[in-house]
Design a binder for these strands. Structure first.
Lengths: 204, 204
DNA sequence: CTAGTGATAAGACTTAGTCCCATCACTATA
DNA sequence: TATAGTGATGGGACTAAGTCTTATCACTAG
């Protein structure tokens, strides 16, 4: 039942490492097979060779098992904006932030991404969680921009634009047939959005 | 226990009208008193003179009792954009949509708004639901704009701007000390956002 | 007076999530 | 080697959300 070949003890999976990752993989597999609602936390834990108690020690709730990486992204976004030189424009900051999270989009993660997206899209509770993560991300970005002296309204709007560019890019990158690099896709998404701002801001 | 003076039968509240509204009021009162988590659905139903079964026939889940009106807003936004003349700009459409929902912001609702906002802000599960409603609203707005021929990217961005203007305006309108009309606040919010687009779109 | 309809009550049932405590593997120190 | 301590896990009791089914009630049409 374990992932590797190292199993030293009679109680197989209990003390093997990477309990958290095993739970994540087990959950994604079961959600894909049977759907989110038809899968029990106990079943997830069973497949990972663990128990319900352990599941809830690693994840606050059943949904959270699919959103482990999201919090790291916020940190990357925030740091990238904070590290931008004072001369950088808002668009430069957003570009830097989008580039900073490219490390999370390695080819090996690319296999699981479409699967994860399909599961989330199929369940409104999971969509809710994804939206919460995005909103928190927007909040972090807006905060980082305000720290640079950007005014409240512009920071909020720019944060929305950044998140919109990010989620669009992620969606396209995760599409099964996609071959393009994430950074390339993200730049294009931001460029398109910046072009669109003219259609909204211009007084006609 | 009932809201009005009309109580014809021995079983007091069971067949009195407005069960849904009674549940909403009872829930808001209890959430304010004890907090969302510390309030049971059974307690809400009890205070409304009903049962748990009836609560779940009116609301899909415990959170939804606070978000009854949100779905109507989406319809108002959508209709207003669809009804705008072909010559209207995107900004005109957003303005018309923001005006269309003014009917929901009557002075009598103004009393409950701060209370509701405080409850939602105090609980991340409720924030999640609010974000879902906003995202659905953005989706509806973007769809209405695409139906007018607006391209995908611009429609998404404009929808975000519209929702941002709306939620900012609602927040300010619902503040305890506020005296301004909703329409006035909403126009100002949209104007500020449009001005900010220049800071993001402009190539520096 | 009767049959039908829609809203409600009542209660059994499953599962998410919390809490407490025992247990196990491992480590540091005497 | 022995022992105490630490952190992760197992196990089970418990609360409450949410589902489902059946019976009851008020009301209406004929």
């Amino acid at each position: 039942m374990g992932l590797g070949a190292i199993t030293y003890y009679a109680c197989m999976a209990r003390w093997e490492p990477n309990a958290r990752e095993r739970l994540e993989r087990a959950a994604l597999a079961l959600f894909t097979e049977r759907g989110f609602d038809a899968t029990t936390v106990t079943e997830i834990a069973d497949r990972a060779g663990l128990t319900k108690s352990t599941f809830f020690r690693h994840f606050a709730d059943k949904r959270e098992v699919l959103f482990g990486g999201q919090d790291m992204l916020a940190g990357l976004f925030s740091d990238a904006i904070a590290a931008a030189p004072p001369s950088a424009s808002i668009a430069d900051c957003l570009t830097a932030a989008l580039d900073a999270v490219a490390v999370a989009f390695t080819p090996d993660r690319h296999d699981l991404a479409p699967q994860r997206r399909a599961v989330v899209a199929a369940n409104s509770e999971l969509e809710e969680r994804e939206l919460l993560k995005r909103a928190r991300l927007a909040g972090v970005i807006a905060g980082a921009l305000r720290a640079r002296g950007t005014d409240e309204t512009t920071a909020s709007l720019a944060a929305q634009v950044g998140v919109l560019a990010f989620s669009t890019a992620y969606k396209r990158w995760a599409e099964p047939g996609n071959e393009q690099q994430y950074a390339e896709i993200a730049h294009a998404a931001l460029r398109d959005l910046r072009a669109s701002t003219a259609s909204i801001g211009t007084v006609t």
